[in-house]
């Protein structure tokens, strides 16, 4: 098992964690964080798998950078929406998930 595969597997694990969080956590903040974890996992896979013969490949680096920018934008938008939702409904959850337990309630 080389380092690249370790990266990739870790990345995959992070991705799965992220997806699980995104799906299962009712709290919006948790969802947004989960999305970021998921993104990090993807980036890890990307960088990890792309190592050929030890030399770093510039293309995935560029892609990951772009990806991070996009993720930041998305996170910002999500946070803005979540705040607005909190202002309006006093809840940090989507209405269909009101029944879920949530310790981070603000």
């Amino acid at each position: 098992m080389n380092a690249a595969l370790v990266y990739a597997l870790t990345g995959t694990a992070l991705f799965v964690l992220g997806v699980a969080g995104l799906i299962l956590q009712p709290h919006l903040l948790r969802k947004i964080l989960a999305f970021n974890i998921m993104g990090s996992g993807i980036f890890l896979v990307m960088v990890g798998l792309a190592q050929r013969a030890g030399t770093p490949d510039p293309v995935p680096q560029a892609m990951v950078l772009t990806g991070i920018v996009v993720a930041i934008a998305a996170t910002a938008l999500a946070l803005a929406l979540a705040r607005q939702l909190l202002d309006m409904s006093g809840e940090m959850r989507l209405p269909e998930e009101k029944s879920g337990k949530d310790r981070l309630d603000v």
Binding site: V19, L22, I23, L24, P26, L94, E96, E97
Partner: peptide, 15 residues
């Protein structure tokens, strides 16, 4: 349809 709106359910289906 209301039940389908449940995130965990949709996510599970998706997976």
């Amino acid at each position: 349809e209301k039940i389908l709106c449940n995130w965990p359910l949709v996510g599970g289906l998706w997976l």
